[in-house]
Amino acid sequence: MALSRRFLILAEGSFGPLSSKTANACIRYVPDEVAAVLDSRTAGRKAQDVLGFGGNIPVVDSFAAGMIHLPNALLIGIAPAGGQFPDAWRSIVCDALRAGLDVWSGLHTMLGDDPEFAALAAVSGATIRDLRRMPSGLEVASGRVRDVEATVVLTVGTDCNIGKMTAQLQVQSSVRQLGHRVNFAATGQTGILVEGRGIAVDAVIADFIAGAAESLTIEAAAEADIVLVEGQGSIIHPAYSGVTLGLMHGALPHAMVLCAQPSRTSIHRNPWVSIPSLSEMIRLYEAAMEPLRPSPVIAIALNTFDLDDREARLAVERVRSETGLPTTDPVRYEPLVIAEAIAAFHVERVSERNVLSPPAMIG
């Protein structure tokens, strides 16, 4: 029987609410699989102290100190722009492979293709798992998602790194508690790490991005009433909009949930691109989907981590008033309002489908 994962998370110099996306998701959603975090800058503290969640997961200052906590795998805990491997971490990865630890990475740099890493893994028997490696056999999209019976809901955003994956993972259990079979379709390396399956669509050759999304959605729909597809990028992002549109047109969502950060007024690292009003963002997303499948935005998920409670509640009320849509911060507050919007949309869609296509009479 395979051993359970027990990660030493490598986040040297970068462990924090905004700078260690992969580490943070792992700590939030699979904390029992985390042995320790390696970051000399915050060493001696607990994950709870650094992130505001994560309990007593220790932060250590060296690989040797991390090994005291008996990990069996090293996880690259950051997802930097461009997904490149920090060369300063090479010695730590080498130490891990020599010790027989599997190495999990969501970077664009394929660690398994590195001759030194591959040689060390071959000697120790360790496995290098590149979560962003493009699978073989992908096809271009052909609209096959139109034939699935499940209701497909995609998160979209005003920007990248704004909570699209987190919103879906937070909402998933609430939708399930409302009595629906639900699956999460992971489209990024961190979602794959949490879910255990998926395709990192931003590492797929452009012509096959929509095909990858189509394949993922169909697979998830085979055993669910509702499929929550993890969104990527933003339709107005100068670097990542191609992935966003490919994902939209491949997954062909029946509905969308818009994710936004109230304090963010321009695209991250691109201050020359102002973020339009939420009403305008809704219009842009719905217009982009309209020729392929009408897909309304049915709820708003806010990321208010940098606001105090009073400011966050005011932001929720302001957005709810502006858009007329169910709105909350699904991490800070109860995600049920978004789950209820998704469930209600699904029930209405199924009811309309049954009216249009009643079951055949028997006998």
Rank of each mutant, 00 (worst) to 15 (best):
M281I: 09
L101A: 10
H108T: 05
R144H: 12
N183T: 08
A210L: 06
V316E: 08
T151F: 09
L245R: 10
A185M: 01
I300A: 05
V148K: 06
G66Q: 01
R98K: 15
R129C: 12
Q177L: 14
E317H: 14
G196Q: 02
A344P: 10
C26Y: 09
V37H: 04
A251P: 01
S173W: 15
D207K: 06
H249E: 09
S295K: 09
I27T: 03
G52V: 10
M110I: 09
I199T: 07
I338E: 06
T187S: 14
F7K: 04
E12P: 09
A126T: 03
S173E: 14
V243E: 01
R90K: 14
P358R: 04
S142V: 13
E311P: 09
L101F: 04
A167C: 15
P253Q: 10
V204S: 06
V93H: 03
D202Q: 00
W272S: 12
D49R: 10
T217G: 08
M256E: 05
M67Q: 12
P335V: 12
V331R: 09
V273T: 13
M165V: 10
Q48T: 14
A343F: 00
I267L: 04
I342N: 09
G242C: 11
I300R: 01
E322H: 08
S215R: 01
P262R: 04
A212P: 04
A343Y: 11
A65H: 07
A121N: 02
R320M: 12
G44T: 07
A64Q: 07
F184C: 03
N270E: 11
L74I: 11
A65N: 10
I68N: 13
Y333L: 15
L8T: 03
G233Y: 00
A343Q: 05
G44Q: 03
R181D: 02
F305S: 14
D114C: 06
D39L: 11
G54F: 06
E230Y: 05
R90G: 08
E195T: 04
P296D: 07
A360Q: 15
R129Y: 08
A287R: 13
A122W: 10
V297P: 00
V50S: 02
M110K: 13
D102E: 08
D225I: 01
